[in-house]
Design a protein around this nucleic acid. Structure first.
Lengths: 214, 214
DNA sequence: ATATTGCATTTTGTATACAAAATGCAATAT
DNA sequence: ATATTGCATTTTGTATACAAAATGCAATAT
């Protein structure tokens, strides 16, 4: 039995964990009674959590039939990258317009641990990368943009496909974006951010092509 | 008693209607029992509807305290315009890349009724405008983008502040965007779409300035 | 052997009961 | 007069009972 002010929140987190680590499989039907029993809660707060996941597009509800874990195919992952290009690009633009030095140092702080010549800890870098991209949104102080991105982020994390490109390829790109924000070059900040995300997207698209053509 | 496969959907729609026409006021506390009684349903399906609204950011839940109708201030409306710039701009880009003539004629169809010299019916034009902007997203066939925009659209509709600019100002802009898509000029399609939305945004910002400086 | 039907079982959707927390207000203290 | 306390009332959060729909499978028909 999980304790909280509202059970649905910890249930929601637990479900996401279960989705990410494969305890629940893609396409699987989520039988309310069974999951409720497994988590030691009743269907009422579980339903709340499932509805939140449905709104985030992780779970699909077929009326009268039940809730199903959505299947994310490659097209949808690529579509998410297109969304990220639009949203993060705009975020970088907004930040460049603001030209706030506290923002700049916060962004730099993400990657400072990796500036020495020593080998980069890939896991640590992956986390820094995630922090950087979240921060880019948070710092804009644009609540709707934040909400929208959060929704996307969910997807991305669930996909859980770690880094698409090696740190040595992306580290400079990150610093270039930060620099453009620092000097207040909005066009450049946006363009660089888009390019950065676009490169990963292209890689995913090409992987697909290789796979299907063989 | 409303009939449906799932009561929460009609309840959800009814609530949105109540929000839009002012039956429910901004900032108001939504006491579950009272609304449930008013709609002739129990709290269970009502809760589902309220959670959907919460996820769309129309309603805010304070744990153990209740659900409150969110207050949209001018900053947030402007922030939504920034989101629209990013998302619709990207949508126009995607469509220009596809260069699908069926898309082009569908988009044109929105505004064809207004091409004659006669006076424009503002209400009809407002509807056409809404259709056009929704269509721009739908035609991309990018599900996450669609989801994201839908979320935004909600806001916009609730604000319900009709047209920001007169049809005579925006009609040509719409056709120019469509033309850029038709010739497959992705950069232009995106730039024009952004400019189009940005102009309305600037107008809202200036209105604000006038108000506050007086 | 395959398709169809009917029925028992499972599961969803809704209403409701109940405990715990929040709220509002009168009585009391300062 | 204002602040504080205590208690009745209201409201939320959760569990659960029940009806209606969906499902699965055995029995029967083709």
């Amino acid at each position: 039995m999980i304790e909280h002010t509202d059970l649905s929140k910890p249930i929601y987190k637990r479900l996401k964990e279960m989705i990410r680590n494969g305890e629940l499989k893609q396409g699987e039907k989520l039988v309310q009674e069974k999951i409720a029993e497994r988590l030691g809660v009743s269907r009422t707060p579980l339903m709340k959590a499932l509805l939140a996941l449905e709104n985030e597009y992780l779970v699909e509800s077929k009326p009268r039939r039940g809730m199903y874990l959505r299947v994310l195919d490659r097209k949808e992952i690529i579509d998410i990258y297109v969304c990220r290009e639009a949203i993060e690009g705009m975020a970088a633009r907004v930040l460049a317009t603001k030209k706030n030095m506290s923002h700049v140092s916060q962004l730099k702080a993400c990657f400072n641990p990796f500036t020495s010549d020593t080998d980069i800890d890939v896991d640590a870098y992956a986390k820094a990368d995630e922090t950087f991209h979240s921060l880019l949104i948070k710092l804009t102080d644009n609540t709707p943009l934040d909400k929208i991105y959060f929704f996307n982020d969910i997807h991305d994390r669930v996909v859980g496909h770690g880094l698409v490109r090696a740190p040595k390829d992306t580290l400079k790109e990150h610093f270039d974006i930060i620099e453009a924000i620092a000097i207040g070059d909005a066009d450049k900040a946006e363009a660089l951010t888009r390019l950065h995300i676009n490169k990963s997207k292209e890689l995913l698209i090409n992987q697909h092509k290789i796979k299907t053509s063989e």
